[in-house]
Design a binder for these strands. Structure first.
Lengths: 233, 233
DNA sequence: ACCTGAACACCGTTCAAGT
DNA sequence: ACCTGAACACCGTTCAAGT
């Protein structure tokens, strides 16, 4: 009786595909899209691939490396030609459009943005993005070292903003934090926190897209007009 | 025989102190200082307080809230008078000094910085810091709405930098990531990534303190000189 | 009201043993 | 070389039951 079971189940799941790094990461991306990065665990991934968690360690060093690979896969979706192509177009407009596209991609997966802040990405798609941002910012005519250091600021701002404000099944706890901050800021005592009181509506208000693009412009203007410290030149 | 044990151990641990929110958070801070935030778990904390994990939920909503409370406790260490006090002193110098002090505090606890990026802090000490930064930046003479929006940029930059580069028993994986990025950037193909090649030494080089204070200056200059988008005013 | 034990439903990573 | 089972050493959170 039970002896018949095995051949049948072999026919049903006949070709358990061989493990490859590629296949592992593709599966990880699929799980992330459908259930979020928090479900992309070694154990869950192994289950999905019909093996034990220990098997994955042949192809992936640890969970952090796995998440980094997932991030780079996702960066393939950034629109590098955003804002219109060609040298005719306004470099600033293009630069902000590309950075906004990058932010938008991470916005859907804030947990991935958080992991990008911790473990510096160094994948293929990340390097392509850096190359593109460098070439656009260079067209500002700013000194080369300011451009070099400025890239980090721009990408860090975009990444941190996605990590902070990203949507996606955000655990209800996050909205609570925002509420708590809003409440705390409004409830503040005029005598001890006069500046907060005075700046209060603007401090927390404003549409996210406006704040994001204003931030990009702040950085771009600052990068162009702020020379490196003497000691670093 | 065993009956004698109990009274003895009662005398050794006589007054198991009553649980309070205060006591829980103080213990959490102590564990973090000696072993890092990753050890500040509900279970470990309960063990330290000689109780079960479920008891803590009377005083603390969840792990995220616990970490937020630990963060605010730590923010008491920020030197709000850094850079010299008084209206005589240069506001920019003072502002950068306060922000650097904030960054330094978080630098010792990068995991806390990470949690600050995710769960907006709203504690007492955080509000005091915001108040101080607001009052310093106001002295720049920049329009009030630019100051209001700019605060976020400055604090986010400081927090993200601490989260990224923070030291502290940093899991050896992080240095590996930096090495990987450095290697990847150096190994890049001139034909496909000419801009990276051209900017390469500066892209990753430079002492952390110089980059940090340059970043603050970039933001300050940008905030002062970048008007809000028309639609947001 | 506060505290507890026990359970539920998970984690990452290692390692000896197999093929 | 690759894969596996089993183990080690943990997690957060809930909930019925006790005081």
């Amino acid at each position: 009786m039970t002896a018949q079971r095995e051949p049948i189940s072999r026919r049903e799941r006949p070709a358990k595909p061989a493990l490859t790094r590629r296949g592992i990461i593709d599966t990880a991306v699929r799980i992330m899209r459908s259930e979020g990065l928090e479900k992309v665990t070694m154990r869950r991934l192994a289950q999905e691939l019909d093996t034990g968690p220990s098997s994955l360690y042949v192809y992936v060093a640890n969970t952090a490396e796995l998440h980094a690979a997932v991030l780079d896969a996702l960066l393939g979706e950034v629109d590098l030609a955003a804002g219109g192509a060609g040298a005719v177009a306004d470099w600033r407009h293009q630069l902000i459009a590309v950075l906004t596209s990058y932010t938008r991609v991470l916005f859907e997966h804030p947990q991935l943005a958080r992991s990008a802040l911790v473990a510096r990405p160094s994948g293929e798609n990340y390097l392509i993005l850096v190359e593109r941002v460098l070439s656009l910012l260079s067209r500002s005519g700013a000194p080369q070292e300011q451009v070099a250091w400025g890239i980090d600021l721009l990408l860090q701002y975009a990444t941190a903003t996605a990590a902070e404000h990203g949507t996606q099944k955000s655990s209800p706890g996050l909205q609570d934090d925002w509420k708590a901050l809003t409440r705390a800021a409004h409830a503040v005592d005029e005598a001890t926190h006069p500046m907060i009181k005075a700046h209060m509506p603007a401090l927390l208000a404003g549409p996210a897209e406006h704040r994001l693009s204003w931030g990009f412009n702040v950085l771009i203007n600052g990068i162009i007009h702020t020379p490196l410290p003497y000691a670093a030149r």
